[in-house]
Design a protein around this nucleic acid. Structure first.
Lengths: 237, 237
DNA sequence: ACAAAAGTGTTACGCCTACACCCATGC
DNA sequence: GCATGGGTGTAGGCGTAACACTTTTGT
């Protein structure tokens, strides 16, 4: 079943840099490659697009296949097409950024624990292809985006404490923030709602209030409209 | 000379939304399509990538072929892969934003004036494919980027008056700015240098001073590093 | 009672915005 | 000398960042 074209065409892959928070630190999902090239090497999840399959769909499919993870938030990052980036030849990759909340972090048991792993962003192993570059770019984007969008909604369960939200921001930005200023900024603009419930910690201290995002589009598809995207990519003020 | 692959592959195109300033207004370069599909329809310049040719290179090549324009500043915008966006089948386009200064705006005489044209961004004709969407996205990116990067360096000659720079910003943003605040912002940070020369206007009034960008990378290649890009794509603060 | 974590307001500084007059040159 | 456009400084408001104490609850 060969595919014949009049002109040369690239193979199209879709990759995802999947972030989550584990133990208050920002982690990236890595897959150990089974086959060549780079067999045994760590890489971000991804794979070839099927015919007429949008890259974002391919990413979701591959994520589900490789790790059992579904329902992630996804946004296109950048397309990587440097010649030689894949030893197999002309392979162009549409890279994505994905976020997943801690509750869903459990990897599919089908994927042997040795083959998929959450890795702290500040302690990455050598990566296959140009994936180190892709992860670096994704991290920049994530940090920039955090300043404007309420990204946290994708990294937390539906209800969360203000302290948890702050920890997410601190994990992403890699710095500490002032509690009062943070809360002030989060509550202005009404993107966050007080649920009226509190968390029973079982620890000593008061029971913290639980908040929820007012919820524009949790789950699933990317909503374009940043720029700074490379706006997209934009800059660090 | 057919090309045979084991799995289906998309055709890869590279398109460019080329901006410039004409008569103090922001314009986009449009090409009238000669062949099908969308024959006779206006579109942004672009074309198919050759084997192992990076999309950015393909854009430059196509620009030179179709309009004679060379040496533009270029940045990857976003990859468009919605099924059905091209009636010829599975065609994925890596869209770019390009900027060109007014002095080079002259279109190649080889390209009949009827086939290439600068069109004001606020008065675009119907465009082929999903190019209207691409232009809209590019415009967003450009406006966001202007707030941080000194994009003006690509839209002006080497030496320019402060008033000219302000006109560029006003044309891109579509609003008027305060003369003194603008000059203050431009001069702080030392991205602009006073050349010590003045422009002999031939008009009445004092001779305005000429400035120049201190010049990080005029000409040619995109320098990544925004994100908001899709920050890039980023947002409008 | 004591330790740990949650909740809450005020102040100071810096940045950005608004705003008007004088000067140089050509006609 | 008059009209046109260039050049320059200040004051006020807004937003942001710095900062400490009180309350709750479990041990």
């Amino acid at each position: 079943m060969p595919y014949v074209y009049k002109y040369p065409r690239p193979a199209l892959t879709a990759d995802a840099v999947v972030f989550t928070i584990v133990e208050e630190r920002l982690h990236v999902l890595l897959i150990r490659r089974a086959g060549e090239p780079f067999a045994g090497c760590w890489a971000v999840p991804g794979g070839f697009c099927r015919e007429n399959e949008p890259a974002a769909e391919a990413v979701k499919r591959e994520l589900a296949e490789e790790t059992g993870i579904t329902g992630v938030w996804l946004e296109q990052l950048k397309t990587f097409d440097t010649p030689g980036r894949d030893p197999r030849g002309w392979v162009v990759s549409v890279a994505h950024v994905a976020l997943i909340n801690g509750a869903r972090v459990q990897l599919d048991s089908a994927s042997d624990a040795a083959d998929a792993r959450w890795c702290p962003v500040d302690d990455l192993p050598p990566l296959a292809f140009d994936h180190a570059q892709i992860v670096g770019y994704a991290l920049q984007r994530l940090r920039n985006k955090l300043r404007w969008d309420n990204i946290g909604s994708q990294l937390l369960p539906v209800k969360f404490t203000m302290a948890a939200l702050q920890l997410v921001h601190e994990a992403v930005l890699g710095c500490t923030l002032d509690k009062r200023n943070f809360q002030k900024r989060m509550l202005e603009g009404a993107t966050i709602r007080d649920t009226g419930t509190t968390l029973v910690t079982g620890k000593r201290g008061p029971q913290p209030r639980l908040f929820a995002f007012v919820d524009r589009s949790r789950e699933g598809d990317a909503h374009d409209g940043d720029c700074c995207n490379a706006v997209s990519e934009e800059r660090m003020p």
